[in-house]
Amino acid sequence: MAGVAFAAAPVQDEHGAGGEHGGAAAGHEPTHLEKEEEDVAGYILHHVSDSNEYEIEIPLSRDHSAIHLPQFGIPLRGGVSCAPRDTGHGMAVPGLSEGCLDLSITKHTVMMWLAALLLIGSLLLFSNRDKTKLVPRGTAANLFEMLVLFVRDELAIKNIGKEEGPRYTPYLLTAFFFILFMNLLGLFPWMATATGNIAVTLGLALCTFVITQMAGIRAAGLGGYLAHLTGGVAPWLWPIMIPVEFLGLFTKPFALTIRLFANMLAGHIVIFFLLGLIFMLGHPAVALVSVPFAMGIYLLELFVAFVQAYVFTMLSALFIGMGVAMGHHGHEHADAHGKETGHSHDHGKAHMLGS
């Protein structure tokens, strides 16, 4: 765990630097335990965070090799240099504030590429290409078909409907297996969990957000979609209802982003913290307790990898189904209005005949 060295910051007492013991705290040398805590915390943050280096570390050793990934950016305005520069914490490409679009390859980018390759490879290897055989042969092929049918029947059709569900099944299948492979890759040595990066989960949530809005516009039309933002209330309540409905559009992708990010990040932090107790307490006997607990959390993470892929896909199907339902609600309101109008006309005709 302490294979990565980090500088220990000066430690202040509970009175702070300006208190009675402020001078003593400022000149306090960190103890061995405090250094170990700094090393363990730094190692955990270094492991779960994204970086421009792909490190292959040897456990319980300071030997490790790093692969420097390409760093490059695209200038957004003329006369701007987007070459990597030293920021004091390593080489980095200037950001948007300096007129550069950073497109550097990072560790989590590599993990997403691997997950995409696994997704494509699974489709090529386990899909039933022989149309003369209704049942695929092999354990892996049957397991793959079971997951595909589960997403189609239990998530897409049940949440979106029999008519529109198959239309959005390809996206739901792609999201499910892509997230699943990213979750599982982080449980292998020298790999990383891309879904522990909030930028990755935000990108996935934005995909669901765009498809949800497209589904609503397609089902209800642009006019019906905009009318849905009024909530069906009286016009004098529109200044209150429209902002509320508009903000409600973004709470769904926000929930998808935070839920997947927090659940995948927390599990890895807990595992590393349990193992880090061995170095923080400085006694090998602690391993008798921390290692079994860490192993239990690791097995739990295998289950969580499937659960989080399922939850993201299920909520995506639910949100898309809510968008599709806009069209049905519009037709119901139109039919109801038509019946009321027809009833009033018939009543008027009967009144005229009676007179």
Score class of each variant (00 low, 15 high):
Met1Tyr: 00
Ala5Asp: 14
Pro10Ile: 05
Val11Pro: 06
Asp13Gly: 15
Glu14Cys: 13
Gly18Val: 14
Glu20Ser: 09
His21Ile: 09
His21Leu: 15
Ala25Glu: 10
His28Asp: 12
Pro30Val: 03
Leu33Lys: 09
Glu36Val: 06
Glu38Thr: 15
Val40Asp: 05
Tyr43Asn: 11
Ser51His: 09
Ile56Tyr: 04
Glu57Tyr: 10
Pro59Glu: 01
Pro59Gln: 02
His64Asn: 10
Ser65Gln: 14
His68Lys: 15
Gln71Ala: 14
Phe72Met: 13
Leu76Gln: 09
Arg77Tyr: 11
Gly79Pro: 11
Ser81Gln: 14
Ala83Trp: 09
His89Ala: 04
Gly90Gln: 02
Pro94Ile: 07
Leu96Thr: 03
Glu98Tyr: 01
Gly99Glu: 11
Leu103Ser: 06
Leu103Thr: 01
Lys107Gln: 08
Thr109Asp: 10
Val110Ser: 05
Leu114Glu: 04
Ala115Gly: 07
Ala116Cys: 06
Ala116Asp: 07
Leu117Glu: 05
Leu119Pro: 00
Leu125Gly: 01
Asn128Met: 04
Thr132Met: 12
Leu134Pro: 03
Pro136Phe: 02
Arg137Tyr: 09
Ala140His: 03
Phe144Val: 00
Leu147Phe: 06
Val148Gly: 07
Glu154Met: 06
Ile157Asp: 12
Lys158Glu: 11
Asn159Gln: 08
Pro166Phe: 08
Arg167Leu: 10
Leu172Ser: 03
Thr174Ser: 05
Phe178Ser: 07
Gly186Ser: 13
Trp190Asp: 07
Met191Asn: 08
Asn197Trp: 08
Ile198Trp: 06
Ala199Leu: 15
Thr201Ser: 06
Thr201Gly: 04
Gly203Leu: 04
Cys207Asn: 12
Cys207Lys: 05
Met214Glu: 11
Arg218Thr: 10
Leu222Lys: 15
Gly224Cys: 11
Leu226Arg: 13
Leu229Asp: 07
Gly231Leu: 07
Pro235Ser: 09
Pro235Gln: 03
Trp236Gly: 05
Trp238Tyr: 12
Pro239Trp: 11
Pro239Val: 14
Phe246Met: 11
Leu247Asp: 03
Phe250Asp: 02
Thr251Glu: 08
Pro253His: 03
Phe254Cys: 12
Leu256Val: 12
Phe261Asp: 12
Ala262Leu: 13
Leu265Lys: 15
His268Met: 12
His268Asp: 13
Phe273Trp: 13
Ala285Gly: 13
Val289Gly: 03
Val289Asp: 01
Met295Ile: 14
Met295Asp: 05
Met295His: 09
Tyr298Asn: 12
Leu299Met: 14
Phe303His: 04
Val304Trp: 13
Ala309Leu: 07
Ala309Lys: 08
Leu318Val: 15
His328Met: 15
Glu332Asp: 14
Glu332Trp: 14
His337Gly: 10
Gly338Thr: 09
Thr341His: 12
Gly342Leu: 11
Gly348Pro: 00
Lys349Glu: 15
Ser355Ile: 13
